[in-house]
């Protein structure tokens, strides 16, 4: 359709072909200050979160430090107690303790042959003088000072670890 084809139409009719478009829908606009505020809010949330996290980490750091100290104390105490135990387990200490308990050495071994049930040996009572090697000598001095041994033996284990870290 060309413009010449409409030449016979009245002017008004030709004009009506140009229509008014409806206005665009009104969009809500944020005030210009919203964006900086939002950034500030995010920053504040981040800082508070960081602070909370940092505080918690520090708390746990102290807790870990305290537990490490406690572990060190317990480890030190254990080493002293172990040394005391080793001392108590020495043959001379056992010989002394046995003699104090009224025991004497018996060198006359007797063996039972499990295959035949035969008893081989020379079991007989002893008077205590048969093995002059073992004597009721005084207990040897320990290598851990007596007062340290006493402290280690009576030391408190310290507080129990808290449940969430246990």
């Amino acid at each position: 359709m060309s413009a010449l084809e409409h030449a016979d139409l009245p002017l008004t009719t030709r004009r009506s072909a140009v229509r008014m478009l409806p206005p665009p829908p009104q969009t809500r606009t944020w005030p210009r200050s919203a964006f900086p505020l939002m950034i500030l809010a995010l920053l504040a949330i981040g800082m508070v979160g960081h602070l909370a996290l940092q505080t918690r980490i520090q708390e746990q750091g102290f807790e870990i430090g305290a537990l490490q100290t406690q572990a060190g104390q317990l480890s030190a105490r254990q080493s002293v107690l172990q040394a005391m135990l080793d001392q108590q387990a020495t043959p001379q200490q056992l010989a002394y303790a046995a003699s104090q308990a009224g025991m004497v050495a018996n060198p006359y071994s007797t063996f039972v042959n499990l295959a035949t049930g035969q008893i081989v040996g020379l079991a007989k009572p002893v008077t205590g003088t048969e093995v002059p090697i073992i004597s009721a000598a005084a207990a040897p001095a320990g290598t851990i000072p007596a007062h340290v041994a006493a402290e280690a033996a009576s030391a408190q284990a310290g507080p129990e670890p808290t449940q969430d870290l246990a």
């Binding site: 060190g72 104390q73 030190a76 080493s79 002293v80 851990i144 000072p145 340290v148 402290e151 280690a152």
Partner: peptide, 8 residues
């Protein structure tokens, strides 16, 4: 000095 004693 024993570590135990040192801690005390």
């Amino acid at each position: 000095v024993l570590t135990f004693t040192n801690l005390q």
